[in-house]
Design a protein around this nucleic acid. Structure first.
Lengths: 190, 190, 190, 190
DNA sequence: GATGAATGAGTATTCATTCAT
DNA sequence: TATGAATGAATACTCATTCAT
């Protein structure tokens, strides 16, 4: 039962905790997840968990941070990597598809949103910031590809809200979202 | 203190429970709400609550049902009442605005979504059905107003996902959604 | 394991809780006493304890109330019953002796004092009120017996502080307090 | 960041620990104070604290020792320094006042008393010894000033219990103790 | 000497659910 | 129908103590 003790044990454990917590949150959604579950999954004691995160809120905050960064870099990669080689509609589709299809990530996202709304003001601000960032990234990306400029800000708002909503519809098991057509429709003038 | 006796005593109590539960869920969001809170707010005992709802899940299902119907009729009213007198963009804006601005309703909606996703299969199906209904209503409504037909199904998908996502962004305190411009853009594409 | 359910079960349980809690506080002193201990001693579940006292502070407050009343009536009885038949010095001795000798009560008293000081403002006020009451009772009692009046208020202050301090010294196992001589000295000043 | 090396490094640390512990105990009262708090306040690690005090009880014992000595020397100073220049009543008042007014010290005192009573037999003996010392110092002091001899032992008992009790009443926020009158009353024959 | 990572037994509190009356 | 007393499993959090380095 005695875990190995040693120098960079600590760093390992913090990673372990975050990894385990993320996985469980993604599977079970958060409210159903107790700190004991996380500790067990990470193979450490409750006390050790507390050593690194003295509050559930702190852990959630770090998870959120990680999740935001992951979302942002996914998005960035998508926009940057494909900007030259693909049609705008294809990229929009890819964005939709990538984000919406990652079901476990969506579950985590939704749980964190819930936490933020219910009372965690720090989290709320983190979300506000992230959503703004994402929208600007989308805006910038689209401006690179599409010639027209005027309506792109509005389009980016529509796109981001639609992605968020699509995520939820997907989680609810609504299968028949015509993402390809939607992408096409959004990008091309009628 | 002696309760009124009679045939519809039970119906009254069921209404009381639903009304109180809805109000509390809207305020506090569900996770924070205990059955004791609901019973107290309804002015009945916990035992009586259990007489009518032998499980928390049952109560949530009825709340969901009610909520869905209320959303549907709001939407229907909006589309039907204004279809003649207003511009399509104005109506779309009104739809956005009405749904997104009702913050307490959104909170309830999000909570029920969470419940559905986490494990309540019945709820999930109810949501799937409701979302389809809503999308068709939107589609039908738009077809009445807009001459063109071809892209309206796609537009309705974009609109419904965007509304859902907008709801969440609003709950997160993201203030500056340009709903008017978005409405215009969706309908006129410029 | 299933406890009998029935009408005045509740009243019984509240008494049980208070009795058990008092006994354990008197023995172990409070800080060492968990709600689980009390529940076990009372023969009820932790949940039931919570049903009656939703917070440890509430339970402590009721215990305090009870303790204060008991102290007050002990004191009152002492003063009233003996005022005619005994010498003033004898009564003072009896007061000293009665209060100081009740070791378990003293232990409880000290624990409640600690609680009050550490942060329970309600308790603090209850103590302030009780001490004032006690001092006035002492004052009134002494005025009945002793002819002189002028210095009795001061004497009552000295007596009450001395009783309180004596209680502590007794708890600390300081055995040789000459209560009889002290009583004599206080009353006759020689 | 490199700690100074040398013979009295350890002594320094022990002092640091005691100083910090005393301060925190005085402020927060002990029960609320964890060893982690003390270590942090002392600027050392928990491990180091354990190097010097392998048990919380040991630390408390040293704190008690220190506190007792400090009380004793305060008292001694008071009695010795003022014995010539002041009236007996004035000195008694000064003793009352000095001890009772030092609220933070009183808090520590009460906490240590509690610890002693609850189960720490060593502490209990230390207190017994200290109280005896204090009483004798008071006795000796009073004999120097007051001519009469016979009743001074009794008076010293009354005075010491009264001081102890006054300390508690002060901690409880009972404000109106007439210390001056009490001092006068104790010293002067009526 | 000094560190801080790791532990596990505890602590108050919450709450959905049961059931005798 | 209606009640509210009773339950027990769960939950986040605390902390004195150990020990490899």
């Amino acid at each position: 039962m005695v875990a190995a003790r040693g120098k960079n044990r600590g760093i390992d454990n913090k990673k372990k905790i975050l990894n385990s917590a993320r996985k469980i949150f993604q599977k079970k959604g958060g409210q159903q997840t107790s700190l004991a579950d996380i500790a067990k999954a990470a193979g450490i004691s409750k006390g050790t968990l507390y050593y690194y995160y003295s509050t559930k809120a702190e852990l959630i905050f770090d998870i959120t941070h990680e999740h935001m960064n992951s979302m942002t870099s996914s998005l960035l990669k998508l926009v940057e990597d494909k900007a030259d080689s693909m049609d705008a509609a294809e990229i929009v589709f890819l964005v939709y598809d990538t984000i919406i299809k990652a079901e476990s990530r969506s579950k985590l996202h939704l749980y964190l949103v819930q936490e933020a709304i219910i009372g965690n003001e720090d989290l709320k601000q983190r979300f506000q910031q992230a959503y703004n960032e994402w929208r600007e990234m989308i805006s910038t990306g689209l401006k690179t590809i599409l010639k027209r400029r005027k309506d792109i800000d509005t389009l980016s708002h529509v796109l981001l809200t639609s992605i968020t909503g699509g995520m939820i519809q997907k989680l609810l098991g609504i299968q028949d979202l015509p993402l390809e057509e939607m992408s096409n429709w959004l990008v091309h003038k009628r």
